[in-house]
């Protein structure tokens, strides 16, 4: 049972962080299909810092530096989307898809290059960070780490930024009705950049949280196994609102955790459902939600539409 809750919370934190990232991007008017790729790069940034810091580094420094590295890597990677979608009015779905493919391929290339440089007989895409990973744990022996309180803080912060600040009000106006925003002197391009870059920060962090959950090494060839897409589902299920996203993340995290540990529960074992069913459920639920509530869609109205100063 404790194992289930541990996993649920770990997965939920990942999903929530990444979905919040997507939420910022979409509220500014840019669809971010590339969250998966952003996560991979964030994970890569964090993992590289963790594996290169000398053994004696204090836990606090490890935690801070790896988080910063993950966020920075995500941020830089998300620039790919920002430049293409905002400046060049590229098809956001196309660019997002490219970013997902590039995320895994690029990260694998980088890790393999580093590994082979160190040892030509090690052409693997795995980074180990056993020592550094311990620094994250809050309670010895359990998978409760620093990320969970951090995720909680970021959740509250996201809500405050979106609904209580001038920045949030302006950004959401750009995702809903950019012409209206521009007519009162708001710079739509800047706000959209901000939205996409924040999604890079949070997505990158989410990637780091994901690869430190329960394991102490990561094989980058595997990417992040669809968590970026699952986060998109969380965002849709959470109706683009931070607290609903948090609840959706807990629910989806629960299913995900069940698929890992359901054999530990007698009544679930007797149901004899394959683990894939639990993996599938979040997607099926989101799809049903989309079908049922497509009428009053909570999605930002102008998302996916490049902003052109000429149209009024």
């Amino acid at each position: 049972m404790i194992l289930l809750i541990q996993y649920m919370i770990v997965f939920a934190s990942v999903l929530m962080l990444v979905a919040l990232g997507g939420c910022f991007s979409e509220h500014s008017g840019v669809i971010n299909i590339g969250l998966e790729g952003i996560m991979v790069f964030g994970a890569l940034g964090g993992a590289l810092v963790m594996s290169t810091l000398p053994a004696g580094t204090s836990g606090f420094v490890i935690v801070i530096l790896s988080i910063l590295a993950a966020m920075a890597a995500g941020l830089i990677y998300s620039l790919l989307l920002a430049v293409a979608a905002i400046n060049f009015k590229a098809d956001q779905t196309l660019v997002g898809t490219a970013m997902n493919l590039l995320g895994t391929a690029g990260a694998t290339v980088i890790v393999k290059a580093i590994n082979t440089k160190a040892n030509p007989d090690n052409p693997s895409s795995t980074i180990q960070y056993i020592g550094a990973k311990k620094a994250f744990l809050l309670v010895e022996g359990y998978e409760f780490n620093w990320f969970m309180p951090l995720a909680l803080c970021l959740l509250i912060l996201s809500w405050v930024i979106l609904y209580k600040t001038r920045f949030g009000l302006r950004m959401m106006a750009c995702g809903e009705h950019p012409q209206a925003a521009a007519s009162v002197g708001i710079n739509v391009f800047k706000m959209r950049y901000a939205g996409v870059l924040i999604s890079g920060l949070l997505g990158g962090l989410g990637g780091l949280v994901y690869i430190t959950a329960g394991v102490s090494e990561w094989k980058f060839e595997n990417g992040v196994a669809g968590f970026g897409f699952l986060a998109l589902a969380v965002m849709i299920f959470g109706e683009w609102k931070p607290f609903k996203i948090a609840l959706a993340a807990l629910l989806f995290g629960f299913f995900r955790a069940l698929s890992n540990v359901y054999t530990g529960f007698d009544f679930l074992r007797t149901l004899n459902l394959p683990s894939t069913v639990y993996n599938m459920l979040p997607y099926i639920i989101s799809l049903i939600v989309l079908v049922l509530f497509s009428g009053n869609n909570a999605a930002p109205k102008a998302e996916g539409i490049p902003y052109d100063q000429g149209t009024r």
Partner: peptide, 11 residues
């Protein structure tokens, strides 16, 4: 919108 009264931190 565009002319918001704000306190510290843009609240």
């Amino acid at each position: 919108l565009g002319d918001e009264p704000v306190g510290p931190m843009g609240i």
